[in-house]
Nucleic acid binder design. Structure first.
Lengths: 242, 242
DNA sequence: TCAAAAACATGACGAATGTCATGTTTTTAT
DNA sequence: ATAAAAACATGACATTCGTCATGTTTTTGA
C-alpha cells in the first residue's frame, strides 16, 4: 500500500529514492544520475542516546545528514558550562561548511538526543559532488543561509530579550518543528528536560524551572520532560514578543 | 610604481583584475572568463555615514560585496532596542543566502559606518553565476560556513560569558580585524562609540562605559571613539577567557 | 572659534538572574 | 515492584546588570 513511485522518476527503477530518505531535500533535488552517485557515497551510522557523533576539536572527516532522530549541537566553556546551539531534525545537514574542506576541526560537539541515524559522506566525495552538481551547491547555500539567519536571530534573542521571553520563543519553535497534536494542545516529540531548555536559552536550570513553574501556573504549558505539552500557543506567542 | 600585473593572469590584458578589488577572494578565485562576466554584472554603489543600504523587511534585490569601508548588520526589537550582529569589512559578502533567491525579505538592516563603497549584482545574475561556476559556489559555501561559525560563537559568548568578558572579546576581535599599529599598542581603524560596543555585546551604553572605565584604569585600553587604543592585547585576552 | 550636540562618566537604586541548599516527584533500571 | 538516579521544585541570599538622574568632556558643524 505504500507509495512506491517517486513523482520525479522519469526513467527506470534504478533512480527510485530508497525508503527513509524521501524527506531529505538535498537528495530530492538532484538529477537521477547525481542522486545515484551520491547514494553510492553515503553510508549510514547509528547512535544511541547521548552518544557523541563528534566532539569539539575533532578533525572533520564527514559531511552529515540527519536521517532519523534528533542531534544537538553544543559548545562548552572551559569552566564546564554548556550551550546548545541547535537541535538538528531529520533532513538537516551538518558540517556543510569550510571546516569540511580544508582539514579543519569541529567548532562544536554533535550529540544524539535519542536513537539517531545519520547519513554521511567523506568530505572529498562531498566536495566533488558540489563541484559536479550546481543544484546540490545551491541547495547547500540556501540551507547555510537559513542556518545563518537562525543563528543571528538566536543571538538577537540572547542580546535583547528577557529569559522568560527566550524560553517562550524556544517552546514555540519546538512546537512548530517537532510538535504533535494532543488533546490538551501540542505535545513535543523530543524529550526535553528543564536543563536542556536552560542550555538552549543561556540560563541556569533553576531559572528555567522557575519560569516553567510560572508558565504552568498560568496554564501555558504542562508536564515534564517525557511528556511536555504546550497548552496555549497563541498566548505564549504574545508573551514571547512583549 | 603600483603592481599592475596580477600573478594569475595567464593571457591578455582583458583578464586583469581592476584596481581596488584585488582583496576580494571571490573575484580572485574565478577563471578569467567567469571573472570578466561577473565584473560585467557588478555595479558600484556608494554610501555616506549612517546611510541605510537596506532595511529589515525590504525585499531582497541584490547580492553585495563590501569594497571599501565598514557596514554594520543590525536587528532591532519592537521596543526600539538594537543589536549589531556583525561588522562587515572590505571583502565581506552579504546576502549570499536564500533570501537572495526566492523573493524573500531582508532579515536585518545594513547600515554604513562611514564612507562605504559596495559592489552589487542583481540576484538573478548572482544565481546564474553560482550555477555556472562551481568555484564561486564553493567559495560562497566556505564563506557562509565561516559566518555561521562566527554567529554561533557569538551566541555562545552571549549565553555563557559575563558582559565584561564579551567586551574584552569584542575588542580583541576588532583589534585583529581592523587594528593598526600604534606607539601605545593597537589602534582600531573603525570609529566605535561605547554605544556601538554595547549594541554589539548585548548590553546598555552605561554598562559598556563602566566596563571601559575599568579597562582604562587597569591600563588595558585608552582613548574614546575617534581614537581607541588597545594597550595590552595579551592581558585582555587572558581576561576574556577567565 | 564657539556653541550645540554627541559621547563619556559616575552615583544611587531596583529588578533580574545566578548560586547554594534542601526537599519532593518522576523516571529508570534491575 | 522497588531502589537508585535523575528531574523538578522552592527558598534565601548574593551578584550582575539595567534604569534614571546628573554632570563633564569631546566632537562636530556653522
Amino acid at each position: 500500500m505504500s507509495k512506491r513511485q517517486n513523482k520525479s522518476s522519469s526513467n527506470g527503477g534504478a533512480s527510485a529514492v530508497p525508503p527513509g530518505i524521501a524527506h531529505i531535500p538535498l537528495l530530492n533535488i538532484l538529477s537521477d544520475t547525481d542522486r545515484r552517485r551520491m547514494l553510492g557515497e553515503l553510508s549510514e551510522a547509528r547512535y544511541a542516546k547521548d552518544d557523541y557523533i563528534f566532539r569539539e576539536g575533532d578533525p572533520t572527516e564527514y559531511f552529515h545528514i540527519v536521517k532519523e532522530g534528533v542531534v544537538k549541537c553544543v559548545k562548552s566553556s572551559p569552566e564546564g558550562k554548556e550551550c546548545t546551539l541547535k537541535m538538528l531534525m531529520p533532513g538537516d545537514l551538518f558540517c556543510c561548511d569550510a571546516a569540511a574542506f580544508d582539514g579543519g576541526c569541529h567548532p562544536g560537539t554533535a550529540q544524539s538526543m535519542g536513537d539517531v541515524s545519520v547519513l554521511r559522506m567523506r568530505k572529498t566525495a562531498y566536495f566533488e559532488l558540489l563541484r559536479r552538481s550546481p543544484d546540490a551547491a545551491l541547495e547547500v547555500i540556501k540551507y547555510l543561509g537559513a542556518r545563518l539567519n537562525e543563528a543571528q536571530e538566536k543571538a538577537k534573542l540572547l542580546a535583547l530579550d528577557r529569559t522568560d521571553q527566550r524560553l517562550a520563543a524556544l517552546l514555540l519553535d519546538l512546537a512548530e518543528r517537532s510538535g504533535v497534536p494532543d488533546p490538551q494542545g501540542v505535545r513535543l516529540a523530543v524529550r526535553l528536560t528543564r536543563q536542556d531548555m536552560a542550555d538552549m536559552i543561556g540560563t541556569t536550570t533553576e531559572t528555567a524551572i522557575r519560569i516553567m513553574s510560572r508558565f504552568k501556573k498560568d496554564r501555558l504549558v504542562t508536564g515534564t520532560a517525557n511528556r511536555l505539552i504546550i497548552r496555549d500557543l497563541a498566548r505564549l506567542k504574545s508573551f514571547a514578543s512583549a
